[in-house]
Amino acid sequence: MGDNSVFAVVGPGAVGGLFAWLLQRAGHEVVAVGRPATVDAIRRDGIEVRSQLFGNGVQRVRAETGIPEGASVILTTKAYGLDDVLPGIVSARPAEVISFLNGVEHMVPLRSALPDVPVAGASVAVSALRASTTVIDHRSPFVRIEAPEAASGFAAVLALTDAGPSVRVGGSEAEVLWAKFRLLASLALLTSYWRQPAGAALSEDPELTEAVVSEVVACSTADGVPASELDLVRALRSVPGGMRTSLQEDLAADAPSELDALGGALLRIGERHGIPTPALGRILTALGSNA
């Protein structure tokens, strides 16, 4: 794939927009692929990032509603957006696809639709919010990407490493995805259930928090990625107490959310492996899930 790769960032929201901005700034050929209104705004205004880590500035990023044929695809939509963009990815016959979707269930449909294309699931730890369609506030003092060993030669992984984020490559895809999924699902479901920031949500009902941790770890272990309840508790305690999750914000706004990709997925995994998930079921029922 080499130096001539075109990188198509599909879903130029907070994370995707930041990736596109960083890649453009580093001199790579980037296309932001989004809905017509988003494309029009990026064509008009460029992408502006405000970041203590990378500085402030505007990058003029090419924007299209379709993926250029043969591009290296960096998939950064919300999990529920996969069905909408998958046909366009398939028709573009991409050189490779690296997905940053949350959860663990999206890789099967991705691979099934792209049997002859190198596909990898990765994760990113970052706090970034869209102040407007084209303005991104990068709030965390880091952008940490985790990619599986199988993606070590992907052009997108090499380009993102060059562009500024901290990139660690290693382990299996399942290990990479579950490492983020365990923390994100536990935190997002509890903050949404209690309608409180992280600190208050985790301490509101210690027995419920403990039960959620236990069920998430049991699902991870049964799915082939052994995990420790103590490690997950430590990770949850390291989260800033005032942090709110995008799931709770989306649910509060009655907007499309990743509730099914996070909570629903855990219920399905538990059922598949015979793992009881009463605490997770209680939370999903309260949040109105149809999972």
Rank of each mutant, 00 (worst) to 15 (best):
Thr77Ile: 11
Leu53Ile: 05
Ile145Asn: 01
Ala163Tyr: 09
Ala279Trp: 11
Asp162His: 15
Val30Arg: 04
Asn290Arg: 15
Ala147Ser: 14
Asn4Ala: 13
Arg44Leu: 14
Val119Thr: 03
Thr221Tyr: 08
Leu22Phe: 05
Ala26His: 02
Val9Leu: 04
Ile47Pro: 01
Thr209Trp: 11
Arg244Glu: 10
Arg35Ser: 02
Arg195Met: 13
Leu160Ala: 03
Ala156Tyr: 07
Asp83Cys: 06
Pro256Val: 01
Arg272Lys: 02
Thr133Asp: 12
Gly288Phe: 15
Gly11Gln: 10
Leu23Glu: 09
Ala235Gly: 12
Leu110Tyr: 00
Asp84Lys: 12
Gly281Val: 06
Leu287Ser: 07
Phe100Ile: 00
Ile136Glu: 11
Pro141Phe: 14
Ser172Thr: 14
Ala151Ile: 06
Tyr80Met: 12
Pro197His: 08
Arg237Thr: 01
Arg268Ser: 03
Pro197Thr: 10
Ala156Gln: 08
Thr65Ala: 13
Ser257Arg: 01
Met243Gly: 04
Gly55Phe: 06
Glu204Asn: 09
Gly288Ile: 13
Ala222Ser: 14
Leu262Phe: 08
Arg43Cys: 13
Val213Pro: 03
Lys78Cys: 03
Arg111Gln: 13
Gly264Phe: 01
Val49Arg: 00
Asp205Arg: 11
Gly224Ile: 04
Gly164Thr: 08
Ala155Asp: 12
Arg130Tyr: 12
Val119Lys: 03
Ala26Asn: 10
Gly34Asn: 10
Gly46Ile: 08
Asp162Val: 08
Gly13Arg: 09
Val135Tyr: 11
Ser246Thr: 10
Ser140Lys: 02
Gly34Phe: 10
Glu249Phe: 02
Ser112Tyr: 07
Ile136Asp: 11
Arg60Gln: 15
Thr191Lys: 10
Thr191Ile: 08
Ala265Trp: 04
Val169Thr: 01
Met243Ala: 15
Leu190His: 03
Gln59Lys: 03
Trp178Arg: 04
Leu177Ala: 02
Glu271Asn: 01
Ala261Thr: 02
Arg244His: 14
Ala185Gly: 07
Thr133Lys: 04
Ile67Glu: 05
Ser228Glu: 15
Ala79Pro: 01
Pro94Ser: 06
Cys219Asp: 06
Gly2Asn: 12
Val85Cys: 11
Ile136Val: 15
Leu190Gln: 09
Ala185Cys: 15
Val213Ser: 05
Thr134Gln: 12
Ala147Gln: 00
Val212Thr: 10
